[in-house]
Design a protein around this nucleic acid. Sequence first.
DNA 1: CGCACAATTGACAGGTGTCAAACATAGTGG
DNA 2: CCACTATGTTTGACACCTGTCAATTGTGCG
Lengths: 254, 254
Amino acid sequence: MPEGDGVTQPVGASDGTSEGAAACSVDVRLTMLARTPLFRGLEDHEIEGVNARCRARAVQPGELVFRWGEPAESLFVIATGQVKLMEHASDGRLVVLDLFGPGEFFGSAPALGDDAYTYDAQAVTAGCVLALSAETFERILHDVPLVALNALALTSQRLRDAQQTVHALSTLAVEAQVAATLLRLAAKFGEVGPAGTRLEAALTQVDLAAMSGTTPESVNRVLSAFRRRGLVDSGRGWFVLKDRAALEALKDSH
Amino acid sequence: MPEGDGVTQPVGASDGTSEGAAACSVDVRLTMLARTPLFRGLEDHEIEGVNARCRARAVQPGELVFRWGEPAESLFVIATGQVKLMEHASDGRLVVLDLFGPGEFFGSAPALGDDAYTYDAQAVTAGCVLALSAETFERILHDVPLVALNALALTSQRLRDAQQTVHALSTLAVEAQVAATLLRLAAKFGEVGPAGTRLEAALTQVDLAAMSGTTPESVNRVLSAFRRRGLVDSGRGWFVLKDRAALEALKDSH
DNA sequence: CGCACAATTGACAGGTGTCAAACATAGTGG
DNA sequence: CCACTATGTTTGACACCTGTCAATTGTGCG
């Protein structure tokens, strides 16, 4: 997040790991809620109303915010950190459906047609999520029509993204899958630097595989080939996209 | 095909083959709009208001309702018939994203976050679709909050379905894919009969392949195996699921 | 310093896509 | 009513991609 000074955080958040344990401050919550696309266009007092009705929760890396099948009782907005949504197949393999960052929401509620969570939500980094109970969310939807419209537009957009993923999984070879996944992640979380776009989200090759519909070994072979060709650079938990144009080209060819 | 000129044909032929060429009658339109989940809970006069603002269009099998990339100017509600949504890959292969029937809606509008259609919409059978202009749809969304809530719930549900498709494509072998696709179609369009659930939607094995992320040849081999095992029966353009339990079991095993 | 975990690489087999050809069916026109 | 034709279906052979299993190397952390 580029905001820098980050609005007077009184809590002694030295840096890095320590911010994880503490729930975020009221200031941070208000700032994040105002920036959340779901609440775009709301008046300040409406934002404060939402804030008053939500409950902050600090999460540790790897911690599950909720599990598949648990009753759908909350919607979450990410204040800081990243959360990944995943399902596990019967044989134990994982599928990562999406990766969300600050300002994005996830979860389930009867108003969205779900009685139970339809995936696991796991914190990737330390951070803080704001929980809205299903009843609260429903009340907001009714009281503030704009939120319903925002939610509709955002969900439609996600549906479109999911359909593109279906398209990719149906047609692309593993090499193209990995290229597409890297580009998708870079567009959302990449930090542009001198050597290229850097991805750092505690993302392992296992995660990449689970997002690309393939195995860690195959991901590794593809990455090795990319590295030999000078397209990417990578290490333990990080990736740098050095030649996005070439990756784009790969993505579009079978 | 029967006559092609027909406009506003009186109620007359309520079903059967003759309904194809003609745009549907006002009665049919009102009945269908009242049944459409998108407009669930609306008062009669509101339904009539929607009907007054929409434009009926008859479609022939194979006819494109709209193409990928055209400006997103309409939302469509299916009155009769079936419509499939598809994308075509760079190499020409098709991917069928979804198959919709009476009462379901598709299309794009700026209110949903799209400036252009994100897929091709092709009529599978003869039928009639009702078109709402983007401006009209947006006006309805604002004037009738219930529609926005319905749209949100329906879109969320579709997103969930798409995520399950992603999960399936990421983990399942071709055999399981085909089983899953057949079950999904049967749940939505199957007609229960003495011999099993029958699928008849002018669905070819090519379509099945495009929905299962594989090739027509592979689909055929799988179907042949299923037929030998007594799980399904199939012919030119139709399928009968004879043992749904066995197919369900297949779907869940790698 | 050593442990746990991620990354890397190789060998191998099976599944699937590709190419090709024969066959069956439904709708067409004579 | 029947042959004809376009289209969908069926089957075979084959290569190659990719998943699986296994072992080694490298990195970060306690």
